[in-house]
Design a binder for these strands. Sequence first.
RNA 1: GGGGGGAUAGCGAAGUGGCUAAACGCGGCUGACUGUAACUCAGUUCCUUAACGGUUCGGCAGUUCGAAUCUGCCUCCCCCCA
Length: 403
Amino acid sequence: MSEYKNNNTFSFEITKRIPGSLGRAGIIHTPHGDIKTPAFISVGTKGEVRFVSMTDLKKINAQTMLSNGYHLRNISPEIAASGGLASWSGWDGPTMTDSGGFQVMSLGSGLGKVVSMEREKNVINTDPKERLAHVSEDGVSFLDPFTNQEDFIGPEESMQIQCRIGADIHMAYDELTSLADSYDYNVEALARTERWALRSLEEHQKLCDSLGYHQALYGVLQGGRWEDLRRSTAKKMAQMDFDGYGLGGAFLKESLGDILRWCNEELPESKPRHLLGLSRPDDILIGIEMGADTFDCVAPTREARHGKIYTRHGNINITKFADSDEKLDENCDCPTCQANWTRGQLRALLKSQDQEKKRQYYNLASMHNLRFIIRLTEEAREAVINGNFKEYKEEFLNNYFHK
RNA sequence: GGGGGGAUAGCGAAGUGGCUAAACGCGGCUGACUGUAACUCAGUUCCUUAACGGUUCGGCAGUUCGAAUCUGCCUCCCCCCA
């Protein structure tokens, strides 16, 4: 059916498996280079990671950047004209784009709410009358909160946008449901997401044919926290001709491992899987064990800006370390720690009324937290290859949660 | 020497008789944050308490059932004219 399958621009190889589990280490080959997995993908929604330059990204050993079709939709022609996301953004490594599906929830049922993995924090959906995004079979109509303009994105539009942006890996258009949505609603939304997956695939194929080269497309699995939905959608999506899979959803913390297992037991082993939107160390380690290859999340940079600094012995609130001479984290190899910044100095930058100093804090703290999570995936990869992943996981989590 | 304006919680600033322990902003302190509506958001910020209660609006003395708000005197600050 597809010619592009033979042009060999995108592929995945498994280097080593975790015995007795779904986890593996591997390499995703893309036109812009390889991604050694497991890997954390830095989020650069609008084509740049907030307060972190491309040079800084290289310094923290970031392999890939994930941008967002929703945010870049209006300038996607410009991006296409300048040669695609890599050259437009100045990031010369592999890139991914999200479809904009997440915005269905963040502007819709979850508008004004925190996206959390705890059920108690997601008890109610936003009143439909107050939502900025509304779902129909065609796609999602929404009011752009920045421009106040009505707009629409369906699977076809999302593929057109993403192909213009031209990242190496694209995501099918999906509907992310919230933890407050019922089983019945998830059944309905999931069926729609599956139809959108087929439409995404078809449109994407068409666009790639006319472009003359292939960009990879991942199908995105939803289905909430229900095993029957997760397994059935994974089976259906496995039959579709995707290059990889996105594991999506608003996950309940305690069921994350099960959900990933249900999905990945049904998906083809030979294709890469991206766990969308998670980066807490315990989530990443469970994700790796359950067969996820790549991860992305805004938390490392956002929490850095908000004063939460990651350390091997748990997170700290930097504002509590006035005058502290301590480094952020012992033996950290990030540029911030390598330059010997202390907790007290960083706190002073954050608390400063000088915007330049604050921005410097955002940069230094973001690099540290990103490097912390990237290093976690690097160490996990090493452990998988060395055959001691379970020991590594246990030791890391012991240090992280029990000081 | 003459005339005018002002003093409110850590800071700035509302409030001109009861609904005021006192709006709001800043700063401080807690907490949250997971495909970025997020350099954001929530709570808290006189003392004490589990609740109650106590002491406040430059100072002192009054008027009044009741005063940050009205009167008198005092202290300090600012502006204008000499």
